[in-house]
Structures are given as structure tokens and as C-alpha cells.
Amino acid sequence: MSEATMTHDSKVYGYLAEFESADGLLAAAKATHAEGYAKVEAYSPFPVHGVSEALGFHEAKVPWLIFVSGVAGAMAGIGLQWWTGSVDYPMNVGGRPNFAWPQFIPVTFECTVLFAAFGAVLGMLALNGLPRPNHPIFNGKRFELASQDRFFLCIESEDPKFEPTATRRFLETLNAHAVSEVRHDDED
């Protein structure tokens, strides 16, 4: 009965397991994914290779976004030079062609890189939903260590398979240093 009421406790964001090593986190991520949990996130002070893939995350939107931005930059660069020099204000310099494309390569290249770089930075931040100064995970016990020397795995309460006691017990089987509950801010 108490378990049933707890599943409906909307104040619980999820359960957080703390690990002492990157390898421990990677093993736990694999086990959690194999167990069938879907709304899981791992937190680490530096990128641990394989963890996002172990959680079933294989996104490649950022590279595509950069490619599209780069192409847009190239079009903008060559378009700017063509339109200003050939259409809007053609100027005859020693009889040379107005659309002198070999001379337009440097500016086109610079525009490509500039746009692509903005695509990379803004795209990465936007897809990550940053900046976002506050997040329920920051309420986690000792979560300030996630940017220092500890590794965390959180199974979120929105997971269809989430069930307070069983989920907690499952996390405890993963050789975690500690398992704790993460709550939403009280005023939520």
C-alpha cells in the first residue's frame, strides 16, 4: 500500500546511485540499460567513453547541424561576394571578371568556418537545453561531487519501469557507493 502511494509521489525526481570510478559507472549504465530502464542519466566529471551509448543514446544531430551551418555559411559568403560585386555594384578593375571566383575562396572559407562554429556551439547548447541554471538533479545528495571526483547514475521517476522499492534495490545491486532519493524542489 505504501509502495503504491510512493509511486504517485510526484515530488520524487528519481533515485541516484553514486560510484567511485568511471568503470563502475560504465558497468552500472550497461546493467541498467539491460534491465530495461529507459529514463536513465549518468553524470560524470569528465566524458566517460561508452556511457551514453550504453544508455542507448546514439544521437548524431550536432554533426549534421554543423554541416548545415557550414553549407549555409559558404552560400552566404559566396552569395555576398557575387551579389555585391556582380549585381549591386559591379566595378571594372583592369577588365577582370566581376565574379572572380578564385579570389572569392578565402572569404567563402572564412564564412563557412564562422557559421559552422556558431552551429557547433549554439547547437550543442540548444540540444542540451543549456543554459539551465537549476535542475532537480542538483538536489541529489553529494551531487556537487559529480563535477569533481564522483560518478552518478540516476533512474528517473518518469521511467515506466520505475518503482521505488524495486528500483532502489536494483541500484543497490550495482556496487554503488551510496543510493539516495532525489526530490524536486519543494515549491514545485
Binding site: 566524458p47 566517460v48 556511457v51 550536432v62 554533426p63 550543442m124 542540451n128 539551465r132 559529480a146
Partner: peptide, 24 residues
């Protein structure tokens, strides 16, 4: 910017960082 070290964030971060290096 509220960085929390989530693995999905690192995943995109590394993609962006590596390609930025390739552009630089």
C-alpha cells in the same frame, strides 16, 4: 550555464568540440 555533466550532454559536447577542432 548549469552544466551538470550528464552523459548525453558530454556526448554532444564531445561531438561539437571535436568538430570545432577540425574547423579550427
Amino acid at each position: 550555464m548549469g552544466w551538470r555533466g550528464a552523459s548525453r550532454h558530454w556526448h554532444r559536447y564531445e561531438q561539437a568540440y571535436l568538430i570545432l577542432a577540425g574547423l579550427s
